[in-house]
Simulated scan of single mutants.
Amino acid sequence: MSDQQKADYIDDVDVDEEWDAHPSDAELEEAVENLEASGFDVEVVADADEVLEYVTDAIPAGESVMNGHSTTLEEIGFMAYLNEGDHEWENLYGEVFSIDDDEARAAARREAQAADYFLGSANAIGRDGTLVAADLSGSRVGAYPFAAKHLLVVAGINKIVEDEEAARERLHDYAYTFENERAQEAYGVESYPSKELVYRQEGTEGRTTVVLVEETLGY
């Protein structure tokens, strides 16, 4: 299936678009400071082109790379870049989804959670330094807490909200309305945030980097 964007579903959902409002400069600074205080490394970049360059430069040659589904990664061009093979990484995503057998593919997908670099996004980011993300099976967020050696979380600043409570509200009231539409189109089933991660602190120095993009990306 081709890359999908939030715009593909905007006419099919009824949501409050205020959830995509950008923070003020002071609010963005507050979010960065609190994320760093929570143990996350943080980079703020201007746009999709800059974030793609940052992410691809951050992954050393020879490292294994995996990702969970992310509309944001599709919108910035990372998935196309990964699958074109114009890099010197071990593309675990490509390896996993080249397996025809369902059981073997599921086993490989679990093993790939422990990639050297795992990439994804968050459904919401609290200015209190909290990340919130969820999915139906856990395959998108399973690597976040521990399994991956390094984690790169890419998110547009449209996902920044006041605090953890607001982040969880954005997840349930906004992001998963879009995700449900995507899942029905992609897989023929409804989605639900059945496995929800509230990521309040990173205890391993240098493990998790949050890359904030000063654009509206994903949902």
Rank of each mutant, 00 (worst) to 15 (best):
M66V: 04
Q201I: 05
L217S: 09
D100Q: 11
E18W: 08
L92P: 03
K195Y: 01
G85P: 06
L52W: 08
V132D: 07
E90L: 03
E30C: 01
T71R: 06
Q201E: 14
A124D: 05
I76S: 06
E165Y: 00
H87M: 02
Y81W: 14
E36D: 01
D102E: 12
Y199K: 05
V65E: 14
T177R: 14
Y187D: 10
L119R: 10
A61Q: 10
D25A: 13
R200P: 01
L171N: 08
F97G: 02
G188N: 11
E190Y: 09
F118H: 14
E84M: 06
A46H: 11
E90R: 11
V51I: 11
A114Y: 07
E202N: 10
Y176Q: 04
D173E: 15
D57S: 11
P60N: 09
T71Y: 01
W89L: 04
D11Y: 03
I157Q: 15
K195D: 00
L73Y: 12
F78D: 14
V15P: 04
I59W: 11
D16Q: 06
G138Y: 06
A124R: 03
R170D: 02
A107E: 15
S194E: 09
S137P: 03
R140N: 11
Y93K: 09
D20V: 03
H87T: 02
T130I: 04
E103S: 04
L217W: 12
D102T: 03
D47H: 13
S38W: 11
E90H: 09
D173T: 03
E18T: 14
A186C: 02
E27F: 07
D8M: 08
I76V: 12
T71W: 03
V153Y: 08
T72G: 07
D47P: 00
G39H: 15
A21H: 12
T216S: 13
E164V: 00
V210E: 13
F78V: 09
E190T: 13
L131T: 08
G94M: 08
L152D: 08
E43N: 10
G68T: 03
V154K: 14
